[in-house]
């Protein structure tokens, strides 16, 4: 029997210390141990990008990393994007540009878009499409996703749509 390892990982600004089996994938750790189900598993084969999170500020596919590899590192998930109960600009833009239909790809799309804008704050439309090549969407046809990212790069101010970023509010409203 392979031995477990103790890891300490900072996830969405909270430090966690846990014993994990080395084979535990980071995405399983986030979802099943920490309950952070905002990060989704689409393909489980490194293709769809639904599981995208940030590791020390850069995007990675959390289905293709072991939790032990994150020991001592900082992870940001979609659940850490909002501040003080307010959606991040990219979240607000996706909402207001109608950049989602079923929403399954959305957490990964937003995390990858954030990583893209960090590396290239003013991407062209072609650069946005290239930057999102590892994220698949079965619904939108990508048009509004690209428009949402472009609008944030262009500095469009959406104001506060009043959509709550709190998980409890969403659950109370019957969304989970």
């Amino acid at each position: 029997m392979a031995s477990s390892k103790t890891i300490t990982v900072e996830v969405d600004d909270v430090s966690y210390t846990d014993d994990v089996e080395p084979r535990l994938l980071l995405v399983q750790y986030l979802r099943e141990r920490l309950g952070k189900t905002g990060t989704l598993i689409g393909c489980d084969t490194t293709n769809c990008g639904a599981c995208t999170v940030h590791l020390d500020g850069v995007s990675v596919k959390s289905c293709t990393m072991f939790a032990v590899q994150a020991d001592g590192h900082q992870v940001t998930t979609i659940e850490g994007m909002a501040t003080d109960g307010k959606l991040a600009p990219l979240q607000e833009a996706f909402h207001q540009c109608h950049a989602l239909q079923c929403g399954f790809c959305t957490p990964g799309m937003i995390m990858q878009s954030a990583s893209l804008l960090k590396e290239n704050p003013h991407p062209s439309e072609a650069e946005i499409r290239d930057g999102l090549e590892g994220n698949l969407c079965r619904c939108t046809g990508y048009q509004n996703i690209v428009a949402a990212v472009k609008s944030v790069a262009d500095g469009v101010e959406y104001g506060d749509s009043g959509v709550s970023a709190s998980l409890e509010d969403a659950q109370n409203a019957g969304v989970s």
């Binding site: 990008g49 995007s59 990675v60 596919k61 293709t64 990858q112 990583s115 893209l116 090549e133 590892g134």
Partner: peptide, 8 residues
């Protein structure tokens, strides 16, 4: 591949 794979 894609940006995420290139990061790792």
């Amino acid at each position: 591949a894609d940006p995420q794979v290139r990061h790792r």
